[in-house]
Design a protein around this nucleic acid. Sequence first.
DNA 1: CTGAAAGCGCTAACAT
DNA 2: ATGTTAGCGCTTTCAG
Lengths: 331, 331
Amino acid sequence: MPKPTMDDVARRAGVSRALVSLALRGSPKVSPRSRDAVRRAVAELGYRPNLNARNLASNRTRTLGVIVNDLHNPFFPVVTDGIKSAVDALDYRLLVTSAFLDNENEAAALETFIDLGLDGIIMTGVRLDQPSIERGARSTPLVVVSRPIASDALDTVNNDDVAGARLATQHLIDLGHRHIGHVSGGDAAGAPLRRAGYVGAMRDAGLKPVVAVGAFTESSGVRAGEELFDSFEECTAVFAGNDLSALGVLDVIDGRGLAVPDDVSLVGYDNTFVAALRHVGLTSVDQHGERLGRIAVSLLIERLEHGRTEARHEMISPTLVRRETTAAPKM
Amino acid sequence: MPKPTMDDVARRAGVSRALVSLALRGSPKVSPRSRDAVRRAVAELGYRPNLNARNLASNRTRTLGVIVNDLHNPFFPVVTDGIKSAVDALDYRLLVTSAFLDNENEAAALETFIDLGLDGIIMTGVRLDQPSIERGARSTPLVVVSRPIASDALDTVNNDDVAGARLATQHLIDLGHRHIGHVSGGDAAGAPLRRAGYVGAMRDAGLKPVVAVGAFTESSGVRAGEELFDSFEECTAVFAGNDLSALGVLDVIDGRGLAVPDDVSLVGYDNTFVAALRHVGLTSVDQHGERLGRIAVSLLIERLEHGRTEARHEMISPTLVRRETTAAPKM
DNA sequence: CTGAAAGCGCTAACAT
DNA sequence: ATGTTAGCGCTTTCAG
């Protein structure tokens, strides 16, 4: 049994194909009688519209795509939830894809979405180079979440990473710490700004910044943590660039028989569910990922349905969530 | 500048459109000369094939879809990684979508993938009712990962949940525990079998099973954990149906001022990265999610490229990963 | 090896 | 309110 097409429905309902098309999309210029006949025929035949045909003919897909760099990082599901909740209120479909931590995959995912003719694309946690992203943005409205990109070809939504990093660092300083290290995310999205915020806060307080470079993963956090404690013995507090690397640092601290927060205080970034586990209790900076996701969708909608063309770059303020991993240093 | 079409490429390369089509897909029956002309024209024009048109005309998409129920559960990214690595070796595209823990979304995601004409679909962690899944499987080859479904309409890949639960429970029994509770995932995929494995192992050892029902999330683990410790005071060990709920139980244990493993031993399931954090060190059962994912892809390929039509149900053996949360009970 | 021609299933003017 | 008619951009016979 080949799949029924619109022609089958039309024949069965005793109307023309065009009318079926209208009826299916809820046009008001279809008589209740015809509408009903169509509805019945659709049900009887189990008809489903062929999206490729529809998209091709209409040159629209009513579909938004999300490209996530790393499904393993618990921050991204939060953003995606925000996107999802915003899209649900609209009449759009949502496709998600993961780049699996790989630039080439990211480029491929972007091309696929563009080639599919998606109406809009949201990229989050992307590592892809700016020119490639901008090239994509020329084909399809594009918003980048959680990576600051100065470009008038696309929109961005970010938390203020510098402010967030300052919040974290200042919190440690206020507690009385003087020897505060930073585990950076290297060149990952947001990492340079967080590092800058940390360095700025340290300088302002007349303290010496000490940075070890990781990559926003737990394993890189372990490596950078080892490096930090090896070279910076006085260290009594660490600000890690994200929660995942903070967990790596926590492993190092545990491994060295040190106690948190008695011997070392620790702050993360992203306020993921892992930070919130009572057993972990990681003090962390909250980017408000859901809100970032919702804003991303609204930016897309502005372009799609209200014809905005000039770029917008939104920024929201992060907040510090204090938990059990930070305390005043032992004397 | 409207996007260049195949006609533009053909004109520029001085050949016919059909030839461009062949050349693009690497057909051997194109002269090197033409092939080169096409390649050059494509590059100069920045031509990209319109996938909707291609899919419509060829009635194939060379695309596989993955539907994940809950992006927040760190188990699924592991499965997805396996899928991804298997797909990379083949010439298929991969689309992922999340059902965001919601049956209706799952149904919608499935329909979207079918309506898009994807060549094959993998569902993992799905909660959708079996008839709906089977209906989907009638349109598109479908494999369900990590949920046992006895059906000859679709393929499944599972770890042996009963054996895994027995492994976990027996480990606790072998350590000397007699009062072992179970936090179940309720009717979530795999949960009933894990519960059955636990009950079986307990019965075999002449011990009384005590079950609290959760839902495979951390928060449900907290609720079920409270319930368990409230009603089962002698309890010295808990087998949680997955790592997420084990983390919830861990919160409860911490909250009651109990120590792990000195006062209570704890075992999870899935062996996610959170279990492996040294700071958590959760003993857990490993389903070998990557392998599940790779097998899922190979099942799809068997149907797609080797014409298999009868259903296959694969089962792999889980293994226990011992860490710091399990020890002999204090006397 | 190449070109002509017929669709894939649907939408979108345009008529009526 | 409904039907007619062109396509959308591509693949795929089929001739040559």
